[in-house]
Design a protein around this nucleic acid. Structure first.
Lengths: 212, 212
DNA sequence: TCTCTTTTGAGAGTCACTTTCAATTGACGT
DNA sequence: ACGTCAATTGAAAGTGACTCTCAAAAGAGA
């Protein structure tokens, strides 16, 4: 996960100290809440951890928690690489089969995360929550669905279709379902292995027409 | 939807009036709650309809509603054809490709529903709720996922694999995601058309390796 | 009709939010 | 350093989906 709130953005290179105390505190608070939540979730479980408890642990008021995260689930989810993936996808060569494009984009975006031990550990922890907590699993599905719609639009224009063509929707639905399944397989069976290898195997099964 | 609580089961043909007043009342209450809920959902929307309101409309106490339906979402969802589909799948000829088996099972189980105007109308209404209400969509996903696991087990044994083999999981994940997507396409684009045709088209896309 | 068991309703409690409002606290110009 | 303005925060009350407990109501069976 590209925890892009670890370091506040420098905006650009024109203004030097564009980060006031206010911004820094916001980042701190956000991190404090998330850290407290992950700690408590690991110790007591997600459902057994009220938001009030998280607030107390992070030394803020409950209302502040909801100001930073619209729902309790959002404390866990951070998926903000959609735009990144969209740009990568747009950058793939013309005429490349969509399935190949998606595969390459996944390699590009995931290898960075998986190679950094800290990010990888956080990802494993999050995917365990995805596996174990229905509410979080549901949100993940929704999030995947939105990402699918975004990438579907790009694939549609690259293949001369409309975004809501059945082919496009079937394509993205299948691909994202399979990525999710491969990830679940990874986190519950082989978190030491290479997730990208599992995803490749899974996409190959898809590409062979599910002829198992 | 096979509203199998419309008529209480006769248990078998040995005991004649095996349905006491108690059983009949339970069925009535269950139906009253569901009818009230559907009516209110159609009129005011799902989120704007508190369970207390449904209880009042159905003339029962709120606690009774929760006794009949563990959650508000469950008032909408009834998916109980899992075992039926499982039996159908087990009945398919040996050696038939899994994707074909699933296709045939879908035809068998869906055509009955779609050909009955009342059941078809209810299905359209439910799928609209699935499309519009995140909570219901989430539950539907969960339900699909469970059905997938069930059918995956059968497919695994039919193809000489274990139920948690990656191939099997990828297969069911992709198939169910695609069925869901085809259903959403149907309900929002062409509820007059034949859902089974859309599902066939979608499964064919899958079978062609998603080579769009 | 008299038990026994199941079903129901009432009431209190928990937890995830939402909204409102007043107090606090950085940002910024002087 | 100081005062003003806008953003941030906390307190408090409210809503709605559940959960739990317990006593009243009502069907089942003798």
């Amino acid at each position: 996960m590209p925890d892009n709130d670890v370091m506040p953005p420098e905006t650009s290179d024109d203004a030097v100290p564009r980060v006031g105390l206010r911004e820094r505190k916001k980042v701190q608070t956000r991190q404090a809440i998330r850290a407290a939540a992950y700690r408590l979730f690991a110790e007591h479980g997600y459902d057994a951890t009220p938001v009030d408890r998280i607030a107390a642990e992070a030394d803020v008021s409950p209302s502040t928690v909801f100001r930073y995260f619209p729902t309790k689930e959002d404390i866990v989810l951070t998926d903000e690489y959609d735009d990144l993936m969209a740009d990568m996808l747009r950058g793939r060569p013309e005429g490349e089969p969509p399935l190949v494009s998606v595969r390459m984009v996944l390699h590009e975006s995931l290898s960075a995360i998986l190679n950094d031990p800290a990010q990888r550990a956080e990802m494993v922890q999050r995917e365990q929550l995805v596996r174990d907590v229905p509410a979080i699993r549901a949100r993940t599905h929704e999030s995947f669905s939105l990402t699918g719609r975004l990438l579907g639009g790009i694939i549609a224009s690259r293949t001369g279709r409309t975004a809501d063509a059945l082919e496009v929707r079937v394509f993205t639905a299948a691909v994202f379902a399979v990525i999710h399944e491969a990830t679940m397989f990874w986190v519950e069976k082989a978190p030491e292995d290479d997730l990208l290898v599992l995803i490749d195997r899974s996409l190959r099964i898809l590409n062979r027409g599910l002829d198992i």
